[in-house]
Design a protein around this nucleic acid. Sequence first.
DNA 1: AATGAATGAGGATTCATTCAT
DNA 2: AATGAATGAATCCTCATTCAT
Lengths: 242, 242, 242, 242
Amino acid sequence: MTEQKKTKGRKDRIMEAALRSFAAKGFQESTIAEISKKAGVSEATIYEYFGTKEDLLFAIPEKVTLEAIAETERVLPYIKGAEARIRAIIHGYIRIYGDNPDYSALVLLQLTPNKRFRQTNAHATIRKAAHMLLDCIREGIVDRTFKQNINPHLVRSMLLGTIEHLFIQWHLQGGSAKESIMDLLDPFMEIILKGIRSKTDEPSLTLRLNLDNTRVFRELLQASEAREKKESGLPRKDNRAR
Amino acid sequence: MTEQKKTKGRKDRIMEAALRSFAAKGFQESTIAEISKKAGVSEATIYEYFGTKEDLLFAIPEKVTLEAIAETERVLPYIKGAEARIRAIIHGYIRIYGDNPDYSALVLLQLTPNKRFRQTNAHATIRKAAHMLLDCIREGIVDRTFKQNINPHLVRSMLLGTIEHLFIQWHLQGGSAKESIMDLLDPFMEIILKGIRSKTDEPSLTLRLNLDNTRVFRELLQASEAREKKESGLPRKDNRAR
Amino acid sequence: MTEQKKTKGRKDRIMEAALRSFAAKGFQESTIAEISKKAGVSEATIYEYFGTKEDLLFAIPEKVTLEAIAETERVLPYIKGAEARIRAIIHGYIRIYGDNPDYSALVLLQLTPNKRFRQTNAHATIRKAAHMLLDCIREGIVDRTFKQNINPHLVRSMLLGTIEHLFIQWHLQGGSAKESIMDLLDPFMEIILKGIRSKTDEPSLTLRLNLDNTRVFRELLQASEAREKKESGLPRKDNRAR
Amino acid sequence: MTEQKKTKGRKDRIMEAALRSFAAKGFQESTIAEISKKAGVSEATIYEYFGTKEDLLFAIPEKVTLEAIAETERVLPYIKGAEARIRAIIHGYIRIYGDNPDYSALVLLQLTPNKRFRQTNAHATIRKAAHMLLDCIREGIVDRTFKQNINPHLVRSMLLGTIEHLFIQWHLQGGSAKESIMDLLDPFMEIILKGIRSKTDEPSLTLRLNLDNTRVFRELLQASEAREKKESGLPRKDNRAR
DNA sequence: AATGAATGAGGATTCATTCAT
DNA sequence: AATGAATGAATCCTCATTCAT
């Protein structure tokens, strides 16, 4: 155990404890005292490794982001075609965010609003990832997969904004239904791609037809409505009778 | 002047000062002392009107959001067709966010990550606006403007997520190029609508039948049901019997 | 009592408590907690009045120094002759330092080594007092009371340096024999003045002879003996019998 | 180089680094971390050699002061006459202080106000030097070079106080005009000596007799001698028999 | 003898909040 | 209704110092 402690390194333990705290209570509400307790080190030790509470915050995404982008860069060359590449990247985002709920809460809720984070190495890495996405979109425009008149930045904002929105909502509700967002990947990509694809040849066309009014869709619809009612909240309980 | 001051009301002056502060420096970094100075009242006066710093924060979106949704609700009845209505709502969002940068910074960067905000009146209003959007999407599905198999929640997340992302980026950069986001409205709507529209006048129309009962959809359905259960949470376990 | 507390003002109470602490234990060794306790106010109140621990330190000499220089400036016009004026100023220094031991300990031991103190208002006042002294010396040179070739700055350094040294020594020993330094004023001035006076006419000459057995010397002697006893301290009490 | 480093000894390197730090920023503001960095050793090493930060402070003057007094003691026997000897000692002070600005800053600004320093070996050495000066003054009184009624302690305070004041001022300003203090030696000594010298070749000579050998002065002298013994401190208790 | 790593102990400072007037 | 004055309660951060290696 002691060995393991050392092996794993205090630094990592601190970052993990901090990640948990920050994700659970927010950056400001978390205290160094609490993190140090969770990590099993003294407060001073935290300052030994990270000069500042904020530095500690910024140190966390560095690692995860670097690993994520490395993985993506490793895989991307084997994936051909703008659509598949974009899909792979978005899939990567969802996987990272979904596999590390604390991490996504940190990034989406604590780091994004922090202006100083933008001057950080970690943020540069994140920008790099975002740039890869942009390149794929441009690639699709160049090779005529996508329409010529689409705005790549807009498309990227649609891709990222949607993912972020979904995860933020997920976090702010309760964080249940972890896999559901991944389940949205295909429908999501379908809408986006359909929206930006060149008109010519639509191979997916033949497959996308007779869902209308099937049992499947009826049930999907019912499920959606049920959820709807729930969202309307307590003041409308009686409305359910409608 | 003094009269005007009084007329306008200390409460409004405080909220304005707070809005400016919160937007510029963030909620935590703003202090009551600073806000009271900006508002030209004493710190104690702030506590006369708002019990808590956080209450002050939450009080701000109330007004703007209410006005915004009122305007939308006023206009919407005159707009026919799902697409036009959705467009109108999104246009409303962009207008509100763009016209009140401080307000959008507040909502997108300070309020969204705040979990307690979700139990607020203001948040209920915001949810109401979001619900209108959802209704429009459903309307489009029902009247066959949109494809039958789209997930309305997903579409709404795309709509809102994109807008939010664009404004967040805009804020976190310098806040220049103010009108460009409004300029993106049309291209944005075009992509989205293209992505979700029924193929009414396209040759693919006749082919839209044979996915029904396939493996793909069975799994989608299962996932959806699973999510359904999870979202319904503990208090509704018995509803499943329905 | 409560009335008196208010009348006297918290600010003064804080400064008094701080003066005592700083003089007794030094600036760094004194803590705001301790001072606040002595002053009967909360720590936060100290920060209400003085932005910083160091500001509190610097605020103390301001008042005393201002009063001292005001008194000197009030008296000086009535004193004629460079020698008498210099004597009056030095007398003033000794009186201030001797009457307020805590204050002199503060100035000589805590403030003098502090480089930031030199950029302070209080220090400007102190410089002003030192400048008055310089002017008197120059005056004496101009009116031929003093030799033409003396360096006024040097003389001032002799005057101030001696006084400071005496008080520093006094503080660093035990701070007993309070009046002895004032007793040194005359011998001190005699040496200095003798050292810088023009050769012509030495009216003081005739007077400086038969002091033997005068009241003056008897008292000097007594003072010296008193000091002697005190300095011998407890461990040598029996030596007096020698 | 490595050899030289070792030859010179870590201890010296540490003390040099500390001297620089203490002189530049003050004792409290200097940190062990910073000193260790400057010295090129680890922080722990400093604690190998010096038990405490304050011990390190106190260790510094030891060497310089010892050397200085040794030099003075070596030279003094060859210098005859109270005036010349006093001049030599003061010259020594100015040389030491002027040649080692960091050292003088340390002694005058950091050590003097430190009460614990007075129980130090280094301070004993300093007292010893001061005692030599006192002896010279007394010598001058005994051999009638100086007036019989001067207070040797006062004269010493004038000598030391002036020098200290000059150097303190010099340090607290910018430390420019290094040689000017040495230039002040002659004018300074002239004033002092003129102030305390017997009037041998002056008309007042005949009048200057009757303080000599009076009861008053005999007793003053005794008192002074008694005090003297005390100052020589514990290690010389037996010397009293001398 | 030297040090990397860790920390105990403390201390200044901040600020939301209260309350008598 | 408004506020000046006061403070309780935290929390970040610093640094001298220790100790196993």
